[in-house]
Write a protein that binds this DNA or RNA. Structure first.
Length: 568
RNA sequence: CGGGGAGUGGCCUAGUCUGGCUAAGGCGCCUGUUUUGGGAACAGGAGAUCGGGAGUUCGAAUCUCCCCUCCCCGACCA
């Protein structure tokens, strides 16, 4: 490609509303422009990178036996009603009506459609299958943000495995796991596989691939000594055992005027670790009391996963007063109405002599024995791990790293196949519901994640694998016939060798050309100018190290080809 | 949806509090001259319903009301 013919509107200043590094650089570098919140136009350079990322993903999917499909982006309501997700997806699904008044939705994911196609798989002999597509997804995100990192319209590679049983699913899942690791390696992303919450997908288990970055939206708990890694939505830690003094025969109510917080109560003599923090939540309309230790934090996702609730929110102060009889600050699980579910964090199991609110403003109980005094429905893991807590596997102090979710794989099980009635007959002629997995990787998000982790003061630093061009030939003086001819010759040689080369043949000053080339992040630059030409050399600059070496003119093509082929 | 911030030529900003000539500057763009290995200099030029609407006023980018949009922090996800 000749730069003089290329549409690359680079900007000296980033748009004022861009915050994330990748957002700023992708706009400044002329890769994309925002149309409106969560929707970006891909410009030629951006689309090239996007397609290179997609190709890497596609190649790896094909390598594990994936077959590429292309499904519609617009789906009938009935399909989503069959799985029950028309209702549960809520506002995140874009919904519209066609001219006849029929309701349709824009696909946020394609389990339903693939499961319906899977009804045409009839024999166990046809399994396993891996089906995939790279298709646009639409999600009415409550808050699109950080440029391409979180948008409402994006290309996703989604694949689905079909197996006859759980062991088959495990094998398909592992294949994807391996393929994903290879994809991230090719994208030069340091992705950690972590245990994750399955969220709206449901299913038996899931693994997220997380890339550490301050632009991320998830927190990953990571052990520095062993391989334990988990999303805070799932992570656990080993707590020091606590020994409690023997409690009194029954809880003692005591006056606590003005005391509303754990901290204030601690100052009044009750250690936070001996307090019960009672959070009043509304799960699908039902009042639930979630109890964690005073010095612990409730993780809402854990509560949701444990209960299977769809809609979950803290109770309003009015609801709290209506159902518990007191305002926040004096709440507790002791003696609540029978119809109120009490879920208690596992860290509180067996604890006694605790202090908690008495559900009467300005009064608390002490000497509470949880098993004796609280009508516990279940002990469940509700606590969010904090940095520094001990690893559940090896007891080392763990850290929490902000991360971008670059990919997510799920063991779905039979939920969707059952809903769509997708089954096969096994060797004994028995009906077997197809066991499914689903596997997602966002193309644009991965592109942005690379940008987020590959840049310096001069701009982007793409890995060769996804760079918009692999090398740029910078012609210093386009009106100097000798060097221009030599540059064109090099360009032809590189292209003939299959190198994705760009020749900067613009009649512009050196500084402008260098700055643009660095901003858009081309891995290698060959600078051809009269100065070196008279000595028989050109310059080769590595974008990553910014080191320049002189190379003989007759050796430059081979040198570049060798370097790029090694880096691909 | 709750909280915070912001909309001024293609991009970045000043001006708004304290209303007052033709809305200012930089980048970019066009023409010319001189330049030419790190975002050149000079001269000339094009480009703006100051987010939209209503109102107050002799007079509104500036004040009032309504609406729209965008960004950031929280509850969701690739």
């Amino acid at each position: 490609m000749r730069w003089s013919n290329l549409f690359v509107p680079t900007l000296r200043d980033a748009p004022g509303d861009a915050e994330a590094v990748s957002h700023k650089l992708l706009v400044r570098g002329g890769f994309m422009r925002q149309l409106h919140a969560g929707h970006y136009s891909m410009l030629p350079l951006g689309w090239k990178v996007h397609e290179k990322v997609a190709k890497i993903v596609r190649d790896e999917m094909n390598l594990i036996g994936g077959q590429e499909f292309l499904l519609p982006a617009m789906h009938p309501k009935s399909l989503w009603e069959a799985s029950g997700r028309w209702a549960t997806m809520g506002d995140e699904m874009f919904r519209l009506e066609d001219r006849s008044g029929a309701e349709v939705g824009l696909g946020m994911t394609h389990e339903e459609v693939f499961a319906q196609i899977a009804t045409e798989v009839n024999s166990y002999k046809s399994l396993p299958q891996i089906w995939y597509q790279i298709q646009w997804k639409f999600r009415d995100e409550p808050r699109p943000k950080a440029g391409l990192l979180r948008v409402r319209e994006f290309a996703m590679k989604d694949s689905y495995s079909l197996d006859v049983d759980a062991a088959g699913l495990d094998a398909s899942f592992d294949k994807h796991h391996e393929a994903y690791l290879r994809i991230f390696e090719k994208l030069d992303l340091d992705a950690m596989p972590v245990e994750a919450s399955s969220g709206a997908m449901g299913g038996a288990g899931s693994i997220e691939f997380m890339v550490a970055s301050p632009a991320g939206e998830d927190d990953v708990v990571r052990c520095p000594s062993c391989d334990y890694r988990a999303n805070v939505e799932r992570a656990t830690s080993a707590l020091d055992p606590v020994t409690d003094d023997a409690p009194p025969a029954e809880p003692e109510k005591f006056a606590t005027p003005g005391i509303r917080t754990i901290k204030a109560l601690e100052e009044a003599g009750a250690p936070a670790a001996s307090q019960m923090k009672s959070m009043i939540m509304v799960l699908d309309g039902n009042i639930t009391v979630a109890v964690v230790r005073g010095d612990h934090q409730l993780n809402m996702q854990k509560l949701q996963d444990e209960t299977g609730a769809i809609d979950i929110r803290p109770a309003t102060p009015e609801e709290t007063i209506e159902h518990l009889g007191a305002a926040p600050g004096s709440l507790g699980a002791v003696g609540v109405r029978n119809d109120i579910t009490v879920l208690v964090d596992t860290a509180l199991e067996g604890r006694t002599n605790m202090t908690t609110g008495a559900n009467e403003d300005d009064w608390h109980y002490r000497g509470v024995d949880i098993a004796r005094d609280v009508n516990v429905e279940r002990y469940v893991d509700l606590r969010e791990v904090q940095a520094g807590e001990a690893c559940p596997k090896c007891s080392s102090a763990m850290e929490i790293v902000r991360s971008i979710e670059a990919g997510h794989i799920f063991k779905l099980g039979t939920r969707y196949a059952e809903a769509m009635n997708a089954f096969v007959l096994d060797a004994d002629g028995e009906k077997r519901t197809i066991v499914m997995g689903s596997y997602g990787i966002g193309i644009g998000r991965n592109m942005a994640t690379i940008a987020e982790t590959h840049n310096d003061d001069n701009g982007l630093v793409w890995p060769v694998s996804v760079a918009p061009f692999e090398v740029c030939i910078t012609v210093m003086k386009v009106n100097d016939e000798r060097t221009l001819a030599a540059s064109n010759d090099l360009y032809d040689q590189l292209r003939a060798a299959g190198i994705d080369a760009l020749i900067d043949d613009r009649d512009a000053r050196a500084g402008v050309k260098f700055a643009d080339c660095e901003l858009i992040g081309i891995p290698y630059r060959v600078t051809v100018g009269p100065r070196g030409f008279d000595n028989g050399v050109v310059e080769l600059t590595d974008r990553k190290t910014m080191e320049t070496e002189e190379v003989a003119i007759d050796a430059i093509a081979e040198t570049v080809i060798t370097k790029i082929e090694a880096a691909r």
